[in-house]
Computed example of a mutant assay.
Amino acid sequence: MSEKQETPEQRRERLRQEEGRGNPAGDMNDAANRASNGSLVDLTGSLGWKGTGILALFMVLAFIIYAVFFR
């Protein structure tokens, strides 16, 4: 697939894989951490900009509610 036909997710994954080929030990450590904890990059990449905005708005509102009721 040419680079012009790639979706942003495919391009990020291709670049991540190319970077991992240069540093296999670091890539193995990253994969182990990502498998156990998840990755914010993966989350925001899968949500898109609208989903990321809604998630950020939800987090701000949750903090405000916490600050009002529990402090």
Results as ranks from 00 to 15, higher is better:
G45T: 02
N29A: 15
G45R: 00
P24H: 02
S2Q: 07
L57P: 00
V60Y: 02
G45P: 00
D27G: 01
G22W: 03
Q5P: 01
F63Y: 11
M28C: 10
V41G: 10
R71S: 07
S39Y: 03
E3C: 10
A35C: 06
R14F: 02
E13Y: 03
N29H: 13
F70N: 10
L47H: 04
E18M: 14
L40Q: 15
S39H: 01
M59F: 03
S46Q: 15
P8N: 08
W49V: 14
L43D: 13
T52D: 01
L15F: 04
Q17P: 00
F58E: 12
F58H: 08
G48M: 00
Q10E: 15
A25K: 08
P8L: 06
L40E: 10
A35T: 04
P8D: 11
T52L: 06
L61F: 05
R34N: 13
E13K: 07
K4H: 14
M28A: 15
L47I: 04
E18C: 02
E3G: 08
A31M: 13
W49C: 08
S39C: 13
P24M: 03
N33W: 14
A56P: 00
R14Y: 03
V41Y: 08
G45N: 11
S39M: 06
V60T: 09
G22E: 08
